[in-house]
Design a protein around this nucleic acid. Structure first.
Lengths: 194, 194
DNA sequence: GGCGAATCATTGAAACTTCAAGTATGATGG
DNA sequence: CCATCATACTTGAAGTTTCAATGATTCGCC
């Protein structure tokens, strides 16, 4: 117990900076989305992830994994999103335990409306302030730490988070709305995919 | 609206890595403290900040600023901590609007008990995985970004967060429990405050 | 001295998340 | 076939945070 290896002064400074940054940034993101769209960030993330999925659909379990939420949390959240008409649930054809959540057109519209403001905030608060070298170091550190936190993290090893072209142009609004969807007129094919 | 400057592929990868890291780490910290001490991280932070303050006391506003919580959030949290006997409230001698929150001996004991496990987790998940150069880059990036988020952030400019020696050896358990307090036998001066 | 604005803090309701069951379906083995 | 266990998901209650409204007190100013 007393053999704890405490943090030295520099480590402590770094740690405090991280805590502070992490809180302030997430609050800023929440505030922006909440103010402009009345949407919590975690809900935005769900819509974004669905928008990228083939057929804009995923099972609850897949979706929970993607947004890193507990099954319970996701279930409650989808209840809300469904009540808003942004997501619908349907049975899985092969496994009747599973439920498929799909983004509706209304949900997609909400996401497309929210994306620019959200991306603007990310850019303003983060990327516009970093030199290319800093951005690269940042990425390096995050990747390193992430590996230790989540061994099987499919986060961004080589391939991007989302298997984004095994299907017809998935046309999702990415977490930060890479923009693909905003130009893609219609993939509304709906689902064959799912 | 359509003139949004979207994130390029690298920025997007970095941003997703940050989101993932941030969530996973804070969940890991919460889990560790909750499992071992039944204490939410935000409460731990309040105790830690109080422990570093002169006389182990701060006004609610000062405390809220230090832990970066809203006044309301802090008030609710202190209600809980007070119910546990870890913090007490008292009137400010000079400004009767203000309330002084002070860490009790019981609260200090809880903090000292919780610190080693918490620090161990931080070390294991973060600092043990970074090279000195990485740690330094990380600090640099965080400092840069923090400056933009919180202009008047007294986070760690030159002087450390807490005015830590204007008084008799403050002997606090720092956020990461630098260890000072764990050796400091007694500053229990308690202060007129409590 | 006293009015109005700003500051310090608290409260209750609503929103979100977590925790501990609980239901239903699928897979396994006798 | 049936018992058993694992998986997929939901629910209700409890805990924490946010939001809007409110009570005190102090400060600036005439």
């Amino acid at each position: 117990m007393t053999d704890t290896r405490w943090l030295d002064e520099e480590e402590q400074r770094t740690w405090r900076a991280f805590i502070a940054f992490s809180r302030l940034l997430s609050e800023a993101m929440e505030r922006q989305l909440s103010r402009d769209e009345g949407l919590p960030f975690s809900y935005y993330l769900i819509l974004a992830m669905l928008s990228e999925a083939p057929g804009r659909s995923l099972t609850m379990t897949e979706l929970a994994t993607d947004v890193r939420a507990s099954p319970s949390r996701l279930s409650h959240a989808v209840n809300k999103l469904q009540a808003n008409g942004w997501v619908v649930r349907s049975r899985h054809p092969d496994d009747r335990r599973a439920i498929i959540a799909s983004l509706t057109d209304d949900g997609m519209a909400v996401l497309e409306k929210a994306a620019p403001g959200h991306v603007g905030e990310v850019r303003r608060l983060v990327f516009d302030r970093l030199t290319p070298a800093q951005r690269e170091s940042f990425d390096d550190v995050l990747t390193t730490l992430l590996a230790g936190l989540d061994p099987d993290a499919p986060v961004c090893p080589d391939a991007p988070v989302c298997p984004n072209d095994p299907e017809p142009p998935a046309a999702g609004v990415e977490i930060c709305a890479a923009g693909a969807a905003l130009d893609a007129p219609d993939d509304d094919s709906g689902r064959d995919a799912a």
